[in-house]
Simulated scan of single mutants.
Amino acid sequence: MYTNITTSQNNGITTITINRPSKLNALNKETIQELHAAFRVADLDADTKVIIVTGSGEKAFVAGADISEFADFSVAEGGKLAAKGQELLFDFVANLSTPVIAAVNGFALGGGLELAMAAHFRVASDNAKMGLPEVSLGVIPGYGGTQRLPQLVGKGRAMEMVMTAGMIDAQQALQYGLVNHVTTQEELIPLAEKLASKIMRNSSVAISAAIQSINAVYQDGVDGFKVEIEQFGNCFGTEDFKEGTTAFLEKRKANFPGK
């Protein structure tokens, strides 16, 4: 079905793997299109409760964008490339109602780090290296990097990372708050799956409402508190709320219908 990615579904988790090892899983136009399609399918699938995105092989999550595709672009084409990419993949992932965990192994550079940052949170293997090297090519991050990096690590650190085009290792990423957990390569996917299973015990409807509310913090001209109040109120009309509160009062484990 796909040329550059693979997908698998198991126990409520859909794993999307970028699979271009010879290119260190670099993002080209076709891969971005395929990732959009795979995320869309997983988000619409009632059996998928959590999505894990990772890279194949041991060397790279995604080592950047495929520079050969846009080296001769004009100003207008460059702007269109960024706008289309953000719409199709990076903003799309950030605003999915299904939780997305990025499992970062090896290099996550440029568009790769931007994809990891678009996920709802990140875990990394101890060999991970992350950075936004775009200014070394005479361009800036164009897939949300200049916006999401300061949100995650703070303005000063983001300025330094972007201006130096340098890489940070997994421990530094953990210290910066760029990733939530660091583990060995062998344990990376099991850790992501363990976190996914914790998420799956809870109401998928409430989690979707929480994602929207948390994202509202970072939207210009949007009152996040108002979004939270509205989403909180909406929860009262769901079957999950009835089940969750009933189970609590009856001192039993909730069995959420996801409605």
Rank of each mutant, 00 (worst) to 15 (best):
Q175A: 13
Q172F: 01
N202V: 05
V135D: 04
A210R: 05
G156K: 13
R157K: 15
Q147C: 02
G177H: 10
A170P: 01
A173K: 00
N180G: 12
V205A: 09
K198E: 15
V179H: 03
P190C: 11
G154Y: 04
K155D: 13
V179A: 09
L149R: 02
E193S: 10
G138L: 05
M130T: 05
M200E: 07
G154R: 07
I207C: 03
E186T: 11
P133D: 07
Y143I: 02
D169L: 12
S213Y: 04
I199H: 02
L174D: 09
T183G: 11
I199K: 02
E193F: 00
D169W: 06
P150I: 06
A128S: 12
A173R: 03
V153M: 06
M163C: 09
A209N: 10
Q175G: 04
Q151A: 15
R157V: 08
L132G: 02
V179L: 08
K194G: 11
G144P: 11
K129Q: 15
H181S: 10
A192Y: 00
A196I: 03
V182E: 02
S203G: 08
L195S: 03
I199D: 01
Q172D: 06
A165E: 05
P150F: 04
V153L: 13
M159T: 13
M200W: 05
M159S: 12
N202G: 13
V135K: 13
A209G: 14
A210E: 10
N180S: 15
V139K: 06
M161Q: 08
I168K: 09
S208W: 06
V182C: 04
G166R: 15
E193A: 05
R148S: 07
T164Y: 07
G145M: 05
I207A: 03
V179N: 01
A158Y: 01
E134H: 10
A209F: 15
L137P: 01
L152N: 06
G166K: 14
Y176I: 03
I207D: 00
E186N: 12
D169T: 08
G166E: 12
E160D: 15
L149T: 02
L195V: 13
G138H: 10
G156N: 12
A192M: 07
R148W: 04
R157Y: 06
Y143K: 10
V139H: 03
I207G: 01
I189M: 11
Q175S: 14
S197F: 01
M200N: 07
A165W: 01
R148G: 00
A170E: 00
L132Y: 04
L149M: 11
A128C: 08
A165K: 05
M167S: 04
Q212Y: 07
K155F: 09
R157I: 08
Y176K: 10
I189S: 06
Q147M: 11
P190A: 12
G177S: 08
L195Q: 07
N180D: 14
E187Y: 08
P133L: 07
I211P: 02
L174R: 10
Q151P: 00
R148P: 00
K129W: 04
V139R: 11
A210P: 01
E160Q: 14
V139D: 05
V135L: 14
G138R: 13
E186Q: 15
V205T: 15
Q171L: 06
S213C: 10
S203P: 03
A192I: 00
R201N: 15
L149P: 00
P150S: 05
G177Q: 14
G145A: 10
R201Y: 08
L137E: 12
L137I: 02
L188H: 01
R157E: 14
V153F: 01
N127W: 03
Q151M: 12
G156H: 11
